[in-house]
Amino acid sequence: MMIDTPVAMKIIAKNEESPDVFTLTLQFMEEKETGYDFQPGQFNMLYLFGVGEVPISILAHGEDNSLYAHTIRRVGRVTQGLSLLKIGDCVGLRGPFGRGWPLDKAQGKDVLIVTGGLGCAPSVSIIHHILKHRERYGRLIILQGVKHSDDLIFRKQYQEWAQLPNVQVALAADISQPNWPGHTGLITELLDQVHLDLSKTLCMMCGPEGMMRATAERLTQLQLPEDAIYLSLERNMECAIGHCGHCQFGGTFICKEGPVFNYPEVKFLLSQRGF
């Protein structure tokens, strides 16, 4: 079920992840909204009263399937305003929108998740999904890159995931502080450090486009087929239903046909500036 006119959501938890990233956990205020469900990789439009909406990917269900977490970077008017809200405050939500990660195609395969910066947020739901249905998937390899080691969020979660059987976590920071447990350098360099069986790997990426381009190029050099690479794109989105035109990207609307694309679908335009 998709909600097209916003409904009221109550903030039931708020986490400061870093100086400019926070997570709002939301709960429906009306009983009748329980038909709502989402696929990992989809997003919601969150509404700040009197200011406007922003597209935010959905992190995960709560334990009781009624909680929806949204990790947000404080950067524009709406996100600045959202960051000032408190537990118990009310926001609007419509969604879920877009096409999520290819859960079916990933079955029986090793899943390589490559994320950069806040791109780790849209991948959390897929990680949760794989961990919940562990028998359906092979190895899970999680690579996360940040500009500065201080930018890393979800530190505890990465540590927990790293302890699980058949899960490998590797972190990279372009610039690092002393005691940084990960690699100092580019995330693409991690691809050579982790062991990948590219004959049965499916890659899912989310992060800055330069990073995703470089990763896709390196992976194809390593002989991973291009169609085994999926990536989540981002553009200005205001309507979320393919009408407002802002996220038009060649022959697609990212909000509707995406945000998750198979690499060959978008490879050409990703190499062009201004689209």
């Binding site: 406007g52 909406e53 407002c244 035109g245």
Partner: peptide, 26 residues
Amino acid sequence: CFCHHQTETPVAQGDGSVHAREWDSC
């Protein structure tokens, strides 16, 4: 051309707001 952006006009009393779409240009 169909591009539009979404606008928000809060009422003067501060307890309400109207969400609209308005023509935009690439």
